[in-house]
Every structure is written in structure tokens, then in C-alpha cells.
Nucleic acid binder design. Structure first.
Lengths: 211, 211
DNA sequence: CTATTTCTATACCGATCGGTACTGAAGTAT
DNA sequence: ATACTTCAGTACCGATCGGTATAGAAATAG
């Protein structure tokens, strides 16, 4: 166990993380988490070593472990931050119709992953698409989160069908899977260096015959 | 350098690999390569250790290095084997029309990656989508091969347009990128456990947008 | 001030990484 | 039989892996 009795690893980012007693932390934990997210995003979970992290975050191993618990804990925190940043999926739910929703999803994916200020590709995909057996818990967690994202799409399309916003012969499950596939494909193309415009064009093609 | 003066690592699988002089190899090099492909497919390049390989292939490290040169050399050989097995991309070129070609591509991807006898997903994608800096040559090589695959699709669609097999307002580059994206998306969905039938349905939806 | 707590830093842990030197056995060509 | 070559196996290489014990400095509460 860590000797840090004060930090609650489940509440990083909340106000409760700061202890009243003892020497205060010298580094900015949120900025450190941001850099960790960037590293994991570029190199994946297994491809990012503790030495990479301490060098890039500018802190020592004991500080890192006191703040985040473990490499896996840090990765999961970085993943939470990533998902909060990739807000297009949540924002798309505001779209009034199914086709607007689908368009917001695909264009949002193209814009996020085609933005050259970000690392190419998607952390939720390439963080640990496959890995060594000893890291399988991370891979499973990413798979689980991707499935959650897919089910959110599915639920939105189910609602659309119930509202008459989709034809009677349209299958929400198939459509949700199709949208997920195009999003995933966009992330892989982006990892290969595709531009925002190219991804946007593909998104537009993918929506051409929306039912 | 290796002490093996006889094996030419660029001709594994050819007849010339066998030396006339000296003790013959005891293991089946093609079978070993097949198992290596399976391991890399499941765990990726970085996620597969030499210990994994020697244990699963049933040979010692010196034997492995004499036969394949290095871990990276073995991976590239396994990748060649993989691409020769994933023959749907080549077979699809036999289709007479653009839409038949697109259908053959997407259904071929769905069938290959939805086949539960294979590891889930695509070696060319998940072998090293991202990685540590010291493995970046492998990642670059996979990116390069993916781009080759995309350009083959593009060339086929350019020909289709020249033959009047595509509408005048259709852009072969956008269509090729769209097809590639759907194929990639299928591989990610497959890595998450999707079934052949689910992938087939998505492929069918994707083709509904074909001009 | 003292007592307490948590900080950072050094230095280290056993395990594993990819890769190889060396040895003796086993096979082939003459 | 002899010379030669390549085999498989052991044991090891330095480097790095994720993670931690320890110690002293620094900040707080009283």
C-alpha cells in the first residue's frame, strides 16, 4: 500500500482530494493527467512505460504512485478524461432527429480524430486493442466501454424508431452497429494520418442513404 | 550475425531454404510461422514476448533466431503469411463491376474477421496500431501496408469510373476511403466480439450507400 | 517551538525484456 | 571414417519492466 493516506484515487479532480494536513503537492495533478492521456493516446497502454510517464509528466515514481495508485489506475483516469473531452458523442444526443444524430456522430468523430492538435486515432480503440495476457484487464475495460458507447447509439435509434423517426423496416441494432463501424473506421484512418476533410467526406458518404 | 550461414530469411517458404549440408532442421518452419502469426494476431507485436513465442512454437530461442533472424523479422514473415491468407482482397478484384467489387470486399472482411476459428480482428490493424517508440518501425510498416491496400481499392474504382461503371459525379478517392473505413470498422467490431452475421448486416447497410 | 503528516528523491527490488555465446550432439558429403 | 556444418539446449547478457523501501526536506496544526 501507499503511505499516502490522504489522496482518494476515486475522487481525483474533486475538491476532496486536497488534504488539510501535511506538505501540499508541488505539481499540478490535472496537468499531469492531461500529459499522461496524451502519452497513452500516442503509444497505447503497453507501449507507454513508467519511465516515459515520469519523464514526460516531470515527476518521480513515488509521486506518481502516491497520486494515481498504479499504471493501470493512471490509465483509467486518463481514459475518463479522454471520454470527457471527446464530448461529441454526448452532444450528438441533442440532435432532434435520427439522421441529425447520425450526422453529428460521424462528423464529430471526423473532427476530433482529424484534428492535428490531437494525437491521431482514438484512445478508446488503440489504448489496448490487443495486448499481452497480463494486461488483459485493460483491454477488457476498453472493450466494455466501447460496448457502452454502442448501446447508447442503439438506445437513441430505438427511441427514433418508436417516435416514427425511422422507417418500419429499419433495424436499430443494425443501424447502430453500422454507425459504430464507421466511427471505428474513421479512427483507424485517422491513426494512419487521414485529414479532417477526408474523414468528413467519408462521413458524408456513409450518411448518403440513411433510411 | 547468426551462425546460420544457410538460411536465407527472404526466401522462407521457397525451396531454396533447405541446405544440402549439415544437420537438417527438426521442426516444421511453416507450422511454426503459422503459430507465430496466430500469437501476433491475438496479442499484437509488443504484447507477444519471445517467451510466448518459444513456448507456443515449441522451439528454443537460438532455433527461432536461426530460422527467422529477429522478433521483428518473424513478425514480418507472419504478416506476409497473414496477407496471403486474407485473400478476399485479391479475390474481390475478379468482380466484374464496382458494386460487385465493393460487395466482395465488405463481405469478405465480414466473413474473415467474423470467423470464430480465427483470432478476432485484423493483424494488419491491431498488430501495432500504436506502440512504444522503439517499435515504431513495425507500426510504420503496418501503416504502409494498409495504405497499399487502400491504393489498390482506389485503382480499381478509378478503372470503374473510366469504364463508366460509376456515375460522373462519384469521386473514386472518397469511395475508396469509405470502403477502407468500413473494412477497418468491421475489424474493430470483430475484435470486440461481433459475429459474422452482425458484420454481414453492417456490410449490407454500408453498400446501400453505393452510388 | 514541537509533533505530525506528506512531500520529493535516491536507490533499489525481483521479474522480464529481446538477444546471444557456447557446447556437444546429429546429421551430410566425401 | 573423417571432416564439416548446422542443429538444439543451457545458461547467460545488459537493459528495461512495473513497483517500492527508505530517508530527509518541507509544510501544516497545535
Amino acid at each position: 500500500m501507499s503511505t499516502n493516506l490522504c489522496t482518494d484515487w476515486s475522487t481525483i479532480g474533486d475538491e476532496q482530494e486536497n488534504c488539510v494536513i501535511g506538505r501540499p503537492r508541488e505539481f499540478d495533478i490535472d496537468r499531469a493527467l492531461e500529459r499522461a492521456m496524451d502519452l497513452f493516446w500516442r503509444q497505447g497502454y503497453e507501449g507507454t512505460s513508467l519511465s516515459d510517464l515520469t519523464r514526460e509528466l516531470g515527476l518521480t515514481r513515488p509521486s506518481l504512485y502516491a497520486a494515481f495508485g498504479s499504471k493501470e489506475g493512471l490509465f483509467l483516469k486518463a481514459l475518463d478524461l479522454y471520454e470527457s473531452r471527446a464530448g461529441y458523442r454526448h452532444a450528438a444526443l441533442q440532435a432532434p432527429t435520427a439522421v441529425d444524430y447520425a450526422r453529428a456522430l460521424l462528423e464529430g468523430a471526423a473532427d476530433l480524430h482529424g484534428d492535428k492538435r490531437n494525437p491521431p486515432g482514438c484512445l478508446g480503440v488503440q489504448g489496448a486493442l490487443v495486448c499481452a495476457p497480463q494486461s488483459d484487464s485493460v483491454r477488457k475495460e476498453l472493450t466494455r466501454r466501447r460496448k457502452i458507447g454502442e448501446s447508447i447509439i442503439l438506445n437513441r435509434l430505438k427511441r427514433a424508431k418508436a417516435e416514427g423517426d425511422l422507417p418500419a423496416d429499419a433495424d436499430p441494432a443494425d443501424l447502430a452497429r453500422y454507425l459504430s463501424i464507421v466511427i471505428y473506421g474513421i479512427t483507424i484512418q485517422a491513426a494512419g494520418g487521414a485529414t479532417r476533410k477526408e474523414l468528413r467526406n467519408a462521413a458524408e458518404l456513409a450518411l448518403r442513404n440513411w433510411p
